[in-house]
């Protein structure tokens, strides 16, 4: 049985007198997990709690099988963290900064130096590695933060709003890098972002937070599979015989006005069979939309559901 990447057991976190996270319960098993939610939903607080920066007032959180509070040190030795806000030492050169961080993670100085160079070249800052980090552009600083997060070879990469303030080409490059990192090794990923597209491109599972509560936990991979054969058709011709033939093949059909039909097909039926049936029955297919629920649909749906606890969509 696959171990959970993140396991939340009634996690409650209070900062001052305010309860920020209200008894979160859920299990996230995928290697790439997205963290979504509007401002103030508790995303950063959850990340900080997983890193052991905040102590839970109730419940617990386990990451890679380790309790975030009781095994904080052991857990942090497995983590690479890219914070949301500015985080660098401005007077240090980029490569020295990354080497410094790698050494604090426990790499010997020569190994840290080698990995720092590699990480810098890998994120595409090879030419700028000897410049002080303070002179970097915003996009370069984001990449430098990513370099320090991966230099020591973590098992879990936590990225808090990694594409903040980046222009579209830089954002695309960073997303590609994140996907490459995910695919090139068995590293796990926790990505918090306001940009649904970023999460959709990089993650398999999404935890949606709202007002410090879990609005939804959604396995994107399963959703994609479930919606794989959901067709919207606009037809002209004998709809009744067309739909009845499709239903005899195992499809579920819903007929609407103006020749619009929605068809959910079982795995055994291919799209070309729909065309074949239409041709046999003399039905013209004027428009076909092969669509699945986007993450935006899932997110908006979760936001609409008030008080949704740990239900799967």
């Amino acid at each position: 049985m696959m171990n959970a990447t993140i396991e939340l057991n009634g996690l409650e976190v209070q900062l001052g007198n305010r309860t920020i996270l209200h008894g979160l319960t859920g299990v996230l098993k995928s290697r790439a997990i997205g963290l979504l939610g509007p401002n103030g939903a508790g995303k950063s607080t959850l990340i900080n709690t997983l890193l052991g920066f905040h102590s839970p007032s109730k419940g617990s959180a386990r990451v890679l099988g380790l309790d975030s509070h009781a095994n904080g040190n052991a857990l942090r030795s497995l983590v690479g963290y890219m914070p949301e806000n500015e985080a660098f030492i401005s007077k240090m050169s980029g490569v020295r900064f990354v080497r410094y961080m790698a050494e604090i993670s426990g790499l010997p100085p020569d190994q840290a130096m080698e990995r720092a160079h590699e990480a810098f070249v890998y994120v595409g800052l090879g030419e700028a590695r000897y410049r002080p980090v303070g002179t970097y552009s915003l996009g370069m600083k984001q990449l430098a933060k990513l370099a320090q997060a991966i230099a020591h070879g973590p098992k879990l990469l936590i990225l808090d709003e990694p594409t903040n303030g980046m222009d579209p080409p830089a954002r695309k490059r960073l997303i590609e890098l994140i996907r490459e990192i995910r695919e090139a090794s068995d590293i796990c990923l926790l990505l918090s972002s306001h940009l649904l597209h970023d999460v959709e491109e990089t993650c398999d599972e999404v935890l949606i937070l709202r007002n410090g509560q879990i609005a939804s936990i959604c396995n994107l991979a399963e959703e994609r599979r479930a919606n794989r054969k959901f067709l919207e058709l606009e037809t002209i011709g004998a709809q009744a015989t067309f739909t009845s033939t499709l239903e005899s093949l195992g499809c579920e059909c819903a007929v609407f006005s103006n020749g619009r039909i929605k068809v959910v097909m079982p795995d055994s039926v291919e799209i070309r069979e729909v065309f074949k049936v239409a041709a046999d029955r003399g039905v013209q297919i004027r428009r076909m939309n092969h669509r699945r629920d986007s993450l935006e649909d899932i997110f908006l749906n979760a936001m609409e559901q008030t008080g949704a606890a740990d239900g799967r969509i």
Partner: peptide
């Protein structure tokens, strides 16, 4: 120097108290 640009979380997110 570490606090000016918020580098402290980078230190403390490692096995380093």
């Amino acid at each position: 120097g570490d606090l000016t640009n918020g580098a402290l979380p980078l230190f403390l997110s490692r096995p380093f108290s």
